[in-house]
Design a protein around this nucleic acid. Structure first.
Lengths: 210, 210
DNA sequence: GCCAAATGTCACATTTTTTCACAAAATTCT
DNA sequence: AGAATTTTGTGAAAAAATGTGACATTTGGC
């Protein structure tokens, strides 16, 4: 087996597809499927089989000719690649409706993430419990995030507050941010940001309607 | 002024950036900025000015040499391009925590979208009011969506139910789906789907951590 | 009137991403 | 055992997207 190609950098778009592969593999594992070909996996995901094989080849050789991929094995490998062999603690900033929905969302824990800190700046909310967590004052963000060694945060505050929160998170040592506020954040180059904005997604689709 | 280039198809990736431009322009308009150059807009969005000019040139000539773009004018033009000169009624399927957060989210209305139907299949929830809307039984989806002439839907149900819901939405005439369930949906080629899954986004970022 | 600024466009160059095609390997069938 | 089939991994080709540089042109300011 060839060693992983550490020399050349893996394109970000390839990395972005790995979680989708993993999601499908998790599903297959639950179904009890032991082996799957790139063609069948591709069909489920609505992409081409060549793309899957090419993507995976950046990291190693995980399949068997004539057979395909062992679901459990590939699942494990992708988890390793994505650093999902541990549980990541996540800080959530903003305990509004969205924050509540996120804290109660059961989908994180099984996939390697645990919201372990929740912040808000509303005095009415601070101190309240939500899904077993006490809402902390935003003023203690830096302190607590440092203390917990947290590297990932979710921003669920209004757009007007998002940049300030971001600056504080970055100062506290956060290196990955999932941002639900509809605003482009300014961050240092070593901090990763992913955006989730339903409105821009809907607007994208209306282009094709009528 | 040249006519819009209707002959060649506009790349989807270009369309996907228009909502971001619009979002920035809305912000600028609120700030009272009347004019902006592609360079300044680019800086705010973290992309290149050439890209903005090239993207916009697919649709017409909206700027003024020596000056830049009139914020209000460009805003109006992008809204026209994206078919945002009307309000789109949206059906929401799933009245759980996420569904509640979406219904209460104030960000839709100002941007051209109004959730006007909410469905769930839980008898306990059906008939309840949520932000002025009565939760309807999933069994009435086809009927009510048809009746309201709704073309856009948001799926906020568990992954296990998402494909069934999708099939029903498509049968009811929905042509654009914003899917929060962590599963790739099968739809006819004329139906557009956008995916929102915080877990895959987080997993994407953990690749780069430690 | 002249200078500086900024767009729109063209033609390429460059980079990135996807697709193609096929040898090699593993499995199944007869 | 040998032939046929399946499927991977991967170079090579193709396609798509982005970046660059030049430049005519228009506008606004001095």
């Amino acid at each position: 087996m060839m060693p992983p190609k550490n020399k050349i950098e893996v394109p970000d778009i390839v990395v972005s597809r790995l979680p989708l592969y993993l999601r499908a593999l998790n599903f297959l594992a639950e179904e009890g499927v032991e082996t799957i070909s790139s063609a069948e996996l591709a069909q489920r995901l609505g992409i081409s089989s060549a793309q899957i094989r090419k993507d995976l080849s950046f990291f190693g050789e995980f399949g068997k000719q004539g057979t395909g991929y062992n679901v459990e094995f590939l699942r494990k490998k992708i988890k390793e690649i994505l650093n999902l062999t541990r549980i990541w603690d996540v800080a959530l900033v903003g305990a509004g409706d969205l924050g509540h929905a996120l804290v109660h969302y059961g989908g994180f824990l099984g996939q390697g993430f645990r919201i372990s800190l929740v912040f808000d700046n509303n005095p009415q909310k601070i101190g309240q419990e939500i899904a077993g967590l006490i809402i902390q004052p935003a003023s203690r963000m830096k302190e607590l995030i440092r203390q917990h060694g947290i590297q990932i945060a979710i921003i669920a505050v209004p757009a007007s507050a998002a940049q300030k929160v971001t600056d504080e998170l970055v100062a506290a040592g956060v290196r990955a941010i999932l941002n639900y506020a509809p605003i482009t954040l300014k961050v240092p180059p070593d901090v990763h940001v992913q955006y989730i904005d339903p409105v821009t997604r809907l607007q994208h689709m209306t282009y094709y309607l009528k």
